[in-house]
Amino acid sequence: MTDEAKLRIRGLDLHYGEVQALKKVDMDIVPNAVTAFIGPSGCGKTTFLKTLNRMIDLIPGATVTGTVLYDGRDVYGDYDVIELRKRIGMVFQKPNPFPMSIFDNVAYGPRVHGMKGRRSLEETVERSLKRAALWGEVSDRLHKPALGLSGGQQQRLCIARLLAVEPDVLLMDEPSSALDPISTAKIEDLLEELKKLYTIVIVTHNMQQAARISDRTAFFLHGEVVEMRSTEEMFFKPKDKRTEDYISGRFG
């Protein structure tokens, strides 16, 4: 398993100034599967997610030590951050479509990476919206404001926007926490489809969601990875006492 890891993290420490947010994290993330991070608020799972495509760089005072190898190359070494984020994209907790039309939102990524020409952009937009299972709902109003979509549609639009730059890994930070159950179900169905093509890492507060959609689960606590195993094992036979406590709801 470890040989084919998409992302290999070794000895990762992260400090926010004086405070240590991640402690010696080691992890392998396998391709074409959904990896879920669970854990109580403030345990460092979102922080960890952000280190994978260096979105953590945007936070002033955050310092990272250790290695993150993506396809064998060190993300914090000579990796071009633009190229990295193009390959490892991110979907945020709250849908954040740009204040543009639906079309321009999806075409944004390809455009900034130099794609020109109406035809190729249109093809990319259509393909991405279809992969994000949104095409049927918006194909007749591509040039309407993206902010006119419902929350669930907006989140799928953000996924489509990400797919348009043809990434390899999708990082998702609680993508359905701001959505209603029906929209959540749609996103979950979508992830099931997307994992055939992409490597997916998802942070979730919702243990049931992790259980439903993920293949492997990591449990974070106080900046440490307590346990990481296949989801089935994790939920039915947790090895660590703390994992069991968390899963059975003893953390509150």
């Binding site: 495509n53 979105m55 945007l58 633009i82 190229e83 990295l84 984020r85 193009k86 994209g89 991110m90 945020f92 709250k94 954040n96 479509p97 740009f98 204040p99 543009m100 944004y108 990524g109 455009r111 900034v112 990476h113 953000c158 926007r161 990400l162 730059v165």
Partner: peptide, 27 residues
Amino acid sequence: VPASHREGSLALGATRWQTVTRVVLRA
């Protein structure tokens, strides 16, 4: 302009300049 617009753009691999000119100034 909400920080989420900037994050969204940067997370797509846009440069800071592209983010400022195409998203932030537009918004």
